[in-house]
Amino acid sequence: MTPAAETPLLHARNIGFRYGRRESDYRFDDWTASFPRGAVTALTGPSGCGKSTRLYLLALMLRISSGSIELDGERVDDLPDGARAALRANRFGFIFQDAALDTSRTVLDNVVETALYRGERKRDLHTRARELLDELGVAVPADRKPGEVSGGQAQRIATCRALIGRPDVIVADEPTGNLDPASAQVLLGALRRHTDQGAGVIIVTHDPGVAAWADHRIELSAS
C-alpha cells in the first residue's frame, strides 16, 4: 500500500531520551521532527547537543524513553528487538563517521554484508555491489581488504554498503567529516541520486556546506 503523500517517511513525535539514571546524565524531552521522502534533511547543532543520539533513535538503534517514532505512519519504536533489527536491515541504510568496515573481510564482502541480515544470498548482490563500487569511484579491487584503502575510499565503500539494499531511509552520521572535498562530493552525489528515487536521507553534519546542500535543515541547540 502506498503511504499517503502527506505522511512523512519518518516522524518523531514528542520523543524523550536519557542515558543512565543520574540527573547529570544526558537527556532531552519532547522533541518532534518529520523527515519527508525524496529529500535530504540535515541535523545540525553544536557538539554535545544530541544530533547523533537523535539519529540513532530514529534508526531504532536506541530506545526512546517517551513519545513515539513512526515509519510510513506506523509506530515502530515499541516493536520487540528482533522486529527493530529486521526494520534496520530492510528499511534503513547506515553511514557512520568512521566507515566502520570489517577490516578482516574484502571490500566486496563489506558491501554485501547486510544481505545476511535480510535473509538474502550475498552472491546475488555481487553484480550490484560492483556497479555501486564503480558508480562511487572506488578505485581498489573488490577483493582487497579495507585496511589497504584510504579513508575517503573506505567511506565510499561504506556508502555502497548503505545503498546495496535500496533502503527507504539512509541515516548518515557526519559522513563527510573525515573526507577530502572530492570524496565528499561523490558521497553526497550518491545520496542525492538515492533521494531522487524516493528515499529519505537524514544526515548529521557540522559542515555548513553540507547543511546548505540539504533540502531541509533541523537546527538543534545545546541543552
Binding site: 538503534m61 528487538d81 533489527a85 534496520r88 536491515a89 534503513f92 545476511l116 541480515y117 535480510r118
Partner: peptide, 16 residues
Amino acid sequence: RKDFGRRRALGATRMT
C-alpha cells in the same frame, strides 16, 4: 566489540 556492534546496528538480530 566494534565488529559485533556494527553488525547489530546494520540489522543483525541478537539471535543472529
